[in-house]
Amino acid sequence: MSDSYAIDVRSLNKRFGDKHVVKNVSLQVRRGEIFGFLGPNGSGKTTTIRMMCGLLTPDAGSGTCLGYDILRDSVQIKRRVGYMTQRFSFWEDLTIRENLDFVARMYGLGDRRKRVNGALEDLGLAARANQLAGTLSGGWKQRLALAACLLHDPELLLLDEPTAGVDPAARRDFWEELHLLSARGIAVLVSTHYMDEAERCHKLAYVFDGNLLAQGAAPEVVASQGLSTWQVYGENLVGLSEALKNASGVDQTVLFGTRLHVSGKDGAALERTLAQTAGSAAFRIEKTETGLEDVFIYLMKQASGKTGGAP
């Protein structure tokens, strides 16, 4: 049963000194699934990913990665996992080809020349193979890193904010590539801050302050919080947002440029409040679908309210 999961970890915990960075995180990723890992900076995403690929030893908890025990079989896991670090971590003073050659040798790949040439062709970098990796732009570095991670045909990809600092066109290409990989049965765990990327994932997990707050497909995650959301258009939305903050039925207001999202658990109370406060002709109100972003902001506020910490 557990073999159908690429990642199956239970109650992972990690402390650095007196900082409890990861608290009882359990998550399951199926083979061929793109799993989005979301949460603000410093919420423990990188630490969790590192524990799953054997770079860090959990203080407590257990689990398997591709059927191998994350505590005992880190060598087996490393052979079958492609891990792309948050920061570009290939050698800028080596050429593109030299970087790929190094990786290929590290994994003891047969037919090294053919594989590296293949990867260079796929990348579209064959003509620039002898260029130093350090001279590549951000988007190309990211593509090189992905190609290097894929060189040993991993069954699972762990991508730590792969698209940070990459332009929208390159991001779109990158995600198309991820979907092709997932169609080939490769599981992908990808951490991101972008909502559009979150919506491209088959499943999501949201962590905040080391706690996993929600997990599931995007609609499930949205539904799980039972929020009703209205969208308000008009002038002075900032003033309206302030006025609504502590009104009955209003759990949160989020300003998206020209529209204000107002959400609450108690839909009826929220609707009454809106009719009173924003019922004038100056505002246009319409019911809308609760979005992922509304839910994530809500989850974060709930959690920081509980722990007393600032978001």
Partner: peptide, 13 residues
């Protein structure tokens, strides 16, 4: 310092 050590550590070496 350059973060490349993490990359090496993630490989089966």
């Amino acid at each position: 310092e350059r973060g490349t050590m993490e990359n090496i550590l993630a490989m089966p070496v």
